[in-house]
Amino acid sequence: MKLGLQLGYWGAQPPTNTGELVAAAEESGFDAIFTAEAWGSDAFTPLAWWGRETRRVRLGTSIVQMSGRAPTSIAMHALTLDHLSNGRVVLGMGVSGPQVVEGWYGVPFSKPLARTREVVEIIRKVLAREAPVTNDGPHHPLPYTGPGAVGLGKPLKPIVHPLRADIPIWLGAEGPKNVAQTAEIADGWLPIFYTPRSAAMYQPWLDEGFARPGARRTRDDFEIAATCHLQITSSEEERRGVIDGLKPVIALYMGGMGAKEQNFHKNVFDRMGYEHLTGQVQELFLAQEREEATALIPDELVEEMHIVGDEGYVRERAAAWEETGVTTLLLSCRDAAEVRRVAEVLA
């Protein structure tokens, strides 16, 4: 199992220590660094900026929101960065949710599975550069001939010859149909809230995708990159503080992300066996009673999702993640010293 550094997306201001984190990951044997985006910072620019100081680590997006750019635009970003990094890009993408897609990007959220398939197909055509890119699908028709078209659209090939036609495409997926499609059409999967205890739930969904005609990968060469917070602590008091500090984030995703009627993250927690809790957390969170919502998050859920403890415990739990098929553990770290220590403990 490889290690990846999860840089995430920015808060109100850019983080001040990203450079030292990336340098430490490069020096310490981490396999990759990953960035994310929500509705603020984008995923590609930090990789271009900080990636220029690296020579070895892979540069991944976890995730690019597909509705934020045309598929050909996503392909342009990927092929450009792949050239600049000498073939180190991992293109992670996802559909996001209706509040962001329709509220921020101003496009319809409907039919996310079909849209995902079209986006992946178009990007692969761009990267293959075998013919001018066309697409007959309803979501991203190329050339566009719909309302408002002037009728002069022309199928095009990228001017730049891509360095790699097979840039890895990993997909963020949460539900059964989306996970199965990911196993069918992608090179890897970026699950959210994946845990060793919940891993068995996903295996039939993945198997369904691998078994489909024309599936791109098999279980043997398919990557699973799961995110968790890993922190080595030296006392029970310190461990207690870290666990409590992680609860507000879980409460946010369980109760405050997405609309009440459609929160995909809440659905994941329901499937994990916390349906007795999720409704209460959501009600409190949406009522702006965030401290009360956070107080409902049990220690066991934090411990299931994250790895916090002494060195022996960390090694034991990391091995448990690896045994479920995780090929890369994406870790959030606070500073360069922590990156180095984690690498040393898990070497």
Rank of each mutant, 00 (worst) to 15 (best):
L3I: 09
A12C: 11
G19E: 11
G19T: 11
A23V: 01
E26T: 10
F34V: 06
T35V: 01
W39R: 10
S41R: 10
D42N: 05
T45M: 08
L47M: 02
W49N: 14
G51V: 01
R52M: 14
E53N: 15
T54H: 07
R56E: 13
S62P: 03
V64R: 02
G68E: 07
A70T: 14
T80Q: 02
D82N: 14
S85C: 04
N86G: 05
R88D: 07
R88A: 05
V90H: 10
V90Q: 05
L91E: 01
Q99T: 14
G103T: 02
W104Y: 12
V107D: 03
S110W: 02
A114H: 04
T116K: 09
E121K: 03
V126I: 06
A128V: 11
P138D: 02
H140E: 12
L142Q: 02
P143A: 04
P143D: 02
G148R: 05
G148C: 07
A149T: 12
K157W: 07
P162N: 08
P162D: 02
L163S: 05
D166H: 10
W170R: 11
A173R: 05
E174L: 15
G175Y: 06
P176Y: 02
P176Q: 08
K177C: 02
K177Q: 13
N178F: 06
E184C: 03
A186R: 00
G188C: 13
P191I: 03
P191V: 04
A200K: 15
P204F: 09
W205Y: 12
D207F: 06
E208L: 03
P213G: 03
G214A: 06
A215V: 08
R217V: 13
D221E: 14
T233S: 09
E236H: 11
E236N: 15
E238V: 06
R240C: 13
G241V: 02
G241Y: 07
G241E: 15
I243S: 06
K247S: 04
P248V: 07
A251E: 01
L252E: 05
M254E: 06
K266R: 15
R271Y: 09
R271N: 11
Y274A: 03
Q280C: 04
Q280S: 14
V281E: 06
V281I: 15
F285M: 10
L286D: 05
E289S: 12
E291P: 06
E291L: 11
T294S: 05
D299S: 15
E300Y: 02
V302M: 11
D310P: 14
V314S: 05
R315A: 10
R317Y: 04
A319K: 13
A319V: 10
E323L: 08
L330R: 00
L331T: 04
C333Q: 02
R334H: 10
A337T: 13
R340G: 06
A343R: 03
L346C: 01
